[in-house]
Amino acid sequence: MTARRKAAGVVVLGFVPLAVVGLTSVPAVAHGSMTDPVSRVAACYAEGPEQPQSAACKAAVAAGGTQPFYDWNEVNLPDAAGNSRQVIPDGKLCSAGRDKYKGLDLARADWPSTKLNAGNRTFRYKATAPHRGSFELYITKDGYDPAEPLKWSDLEDTPFLKVTDPKLVNGDYVFDGIVPNKSGRHLIYSIWQRSDSPEAFYTCSDVVFGQDNGAPAGAAPTASAPTNEQVADGADKSSVDHTGHEGGATHPAAPAAAEPADEGDEYAGEEGNDPVVTNADAVVAQPTASQDNLAETGSDSNTPIYTIGGAAALALGAAIMFGTTRRKAVSTGGRHSR
């Protein structure tokens, strides 16, 4: 091989690491669940999927197995695109219409619940993979019967709280709102619609205002949210990888503290930024200076260029290596033939 050919091979092959980085730098898909007031799926996970304590969680595990509760932060639809009412049928709101989570749709008045009062309240939503998006919180109408399957018509027509890109504090989205005046047992339904993807996430949180007249005394235990230790310990039992697809937990879906996928994965909900909250019409947050170059996937706007360029360099490098090796083999074979 001539020195010129060697140099060409080294120059091209020098781009291979860049190609590999570009091809493997895939942003994480959002995951999470409401933890205050705690959702059904998070409350049952906190009890322990293998040995749940409450009658409702035991029934939910019996209906769908333990795996849905290890995957507590994945009650989602990948292509909702703001059409939740059209794609989720009545009676299946808590499972987002997914058979995997059918145990969450059980109509009963003894789900673990959170005590609630009307007025100002802070809400928390565990974000195991944060991304930009908006939250809508609905509450059930007066006369709601928890012993009947939850229908869209059971919810108030408009959300009592909307927030776009809330702040992230210790792995939780934190935002404030005004809880409507209700009495007895109700349910808060949340929709987290990503703005950088058609994916949406859903939660059902059972709440009780004042005296719970919807169930016998002691039948509705107080719900607890998963601790950070439980979140971390359960990650290796999740069947959801960090790209949001089922098939193993090589990349844990639930780290103890939420972090962006890479340096370019910034969002308006960074600590220190104020969320946009309204109890009336939705308000869209204006991009911050750090978002000007934010790609829709949450990565740097140059990521696609690097990925394409890296792939091309990798292919070219492989071609040159193959060609060079072939020429060397032919040359060697020629000398042996002599």
Rank of each mutant, 00 (worst) to 15 (best):
F209N: 05
G210I: 04
Q211G: 06
Q211V: 15
D212A: 04
N213Q: 11
N213M: 09
N213Y: 07
A215K: 05
A215H: 06
A215P: 07
P216Q: 09
A217D: 10
A219E: 13
A220F: 03
A220E: 09
A220T: 15
P221V: 07
P221K: 04
P221M: 03
P221G: 06
A223G: 07
S224H: 09
A225M: 04
A225P: 06
T227M: 08
T227R: 06
N228L: 11
N228A: 12
V231G: 03
V231H: 03
D233E: 12
D233R: 08
G234V: 00
G234W: 00
A235N: 02
A235V: 01
A235G: 10
D236H: 13
D236I: 13
D236F: 11
S238A: 11
S238V: 01
V240K: 01
V240S: 00
D241H: 11
D241S: 09
T243N: 11
G244P: 05
G244E: 05
G244F: 05
G244C: 03
H245I: 10
H245S: 12
H245D: 12
H245V: 11
H245Q: 14
H245W: 12
H245G: 09
H245E: 12
E246H: 14
E246T: 13
E246Y: 14
E246P: 08
G247N: 09
G248T: 09
G248S: 09
G248R: 09
T250C: 12
T250F: 15
T250M: 15
T250W: 15
H251Y: 13
H251D: 15
H251M: 14
P252F: 04
P252G: 07
A253Q: 10
A254R: 05
P255W: 03
A256G: 11
A256Q: 12
A257L: 12
A258P: 00
A258R: 00
A258H: 00
E259C: 02
E259H: 10
